[in-house]
Structures are given as C-alpha cells and as structure tokens.
C-alpha cells in the first residue's frame, strides 16, 4: 500500500516536473470541449466529423506532452511492479496440491532428470511436448518446505528454487537464461547454459483480501496522487 501511494505521488511529481501542466490541461480541456460538440451539434454530421478530427489532434498533442515522463517512469516502475507481481500475484505451492514444472529447451535435450528435495515428490516421468520443445513433470509437496530443484542432463546441472507453504511470500516463478527473462523475473540470476531457455514452476495465483493486488495498488496510487495534489495546492 505504502509503495502504491508513494508511486502515485512520485508519478505525479514526475509529471509535474517534466510536463508542461498548463499545456497538458489546455490539451485536455480542448478534448473535453470537442467531446461536448458531439452532443451540441447532433444534427450536423460535418461538425461531428470535424469534432472527431480535432479530438484526434488534441489527443496526439496530449500523448506527445506525456511522452517524456512516461519514458522516464518506465524504469523504476518496471522494477517495482515486477517485484510486487512476484510477491502478491503468486502463492507458494500448497502442501498436498500438485504443480507442474516446465522446461523450455532450445534444440534438443536428451536424458534429462529432475531431482527434488525430500519433501517434494516428483510424481511423473518427464512428459515431452516436442512441438513446443517443452518437458514437464508433475510434483507434489508433502509439507511446507523450500529448497532447490535440480535439473541434470549429461554433465550439466541447473538449479531452480521452489517453495511450498500455506502463506504468501516472494516466490520466483521462473529462472531463465536470457537478460530479458531475468528482468521480468529478477529473483534468480540467469544461468549461462544455452541448451534451455527457462524453467518455470506454475505457482497458484493469489489475491490480497479478495482482490488482485493491482486493484489495491492502483487505489493506493490514486490516493497518493490525490493527497499530493491537495497538499501542493488546495484549490
């Protein structure tokens, strides 16, 4: 919640800092005016068309005005949201419930083996989906635990964290070999092996007090921004 409120305030600040708010307000005022024209000049299709055109122009102006802060905000918000998504959107495996582990390989992957900690039972042999180049296993934790899965083929060994517990904590859904994948799932460092692209555990999805965490986050963010607005100028 605090992070949400803070990010609301921060983005507001960024918009104030990097946008010409007067121009932004002017652009959105003009947009509103053109929207009202749809109602004011109902009987004149020519005027409706013109309102439409002017609305698009005003829209383009608005998007241009928010371009810089949008780009600048992408980096910090990316990090915050990725972390929050891993923490709130996915729950650890529940003891007794099955889950699927999937490996995406690049070319071919013979003789692959999956080793799990003693609390987690690997219930099936590897199931190959050749067309998609994926191998899957079904696992089932017997009680709360956390440890490492070990994927082994030929002389190569890659570890992937796994956790099972009744509560919420930061789980790492995927470990990958690429930088982009790492950015999306930064909890585990990328591996250097090129034979596989990623290993993923399908954790159950979670919510916070009945709603997706994004709902709470955006509410907090809106409140944060609103409070900042009120604080900055009470008019």
């Amino acid at each position: 919640m605090a992070a949400g409120a803070l990010s609301g305030a921060l983005s507001l600040w960024a918009f104030r800092r990097w946008c010409d708010t007067d121009k932004l307000r002017a652009a959105s005022n003009v947009m509103l005016a053109h929207l009202m024209e749809f109602r004011l000049f109902t009987d004149e299709p020519v005027l409706i068309l013109r309102a439409q055109r002017e609305l698009l122009v005003a829209n383009a102006r608005l998007l241009r005005l928010i371009l810089l802060p949008s780009l600048l905000l992408t980096a910090p918000f990316g990090v915050v949201l990725v972390a929050a998504d891993a923490f709130f959107a996915r729950a650890p495996l529940r003891p007794g419930e099955a889950a699927v582990i999937t490996v995406q390989y690049a070319f071919r992957l013979p003789n692959v083996q999956l080793q799990a900690p003693p609390e987690i039972v690997v219930e099936t042999p590897p199931v190959r989906a050749r067309f998609r180049k994926q191998i899957s296993w079904r696992v089932r934790p017997s009680r709360a635990s956390s440890g490492k899965l070990r994927l082994r083929w030929n002389a190569t060994v890659i570890d992937k964290s796994i956790s099972a517990s009744p509560g919420l904590h930061w789980v790492s859904e995927q470990r990958s070999g690429s930088l982009l994948g790492y950015l999306a799932h930064p909890r585990e460092l990328p591996f250097s092996d090129r034979a596989i692209d990623w290993i993923r555990i399908q954790y159950p999805s979670a919510n916070v007090l009945g709603f997706h965490w994004l709902v709470w986050y955006s509410t907090a963010a809106c409140c944060g921004a609103l409070l900042t607005t009120l604080g900055a100028s009470r008019l």
Binding site: S7, G8, A9, S11, L12, F15, R16, C19, T21, L24, R25, S28, I66, T74, F77, G78, L81, L214, Y217, S218, A221, C222, G224, A225, L226, T229, L230, A232, S233
Partner: peptide, 13 residues
C-alpha cells in the same frame, strides 16, 4: 490540479 494522477497499472510497463 496538475493534469495527471496515478492509475491503470495494467499498462504498468
């Protein structure tokens, strides 16, 4: 106020 507030995190990236 300034013409922006925070929201719509579905487009968060």
């Amino acid at each position: 106020g300034p013409a922006t507030q925070h929201g719509a995190p579905r487009l968060a990236y």
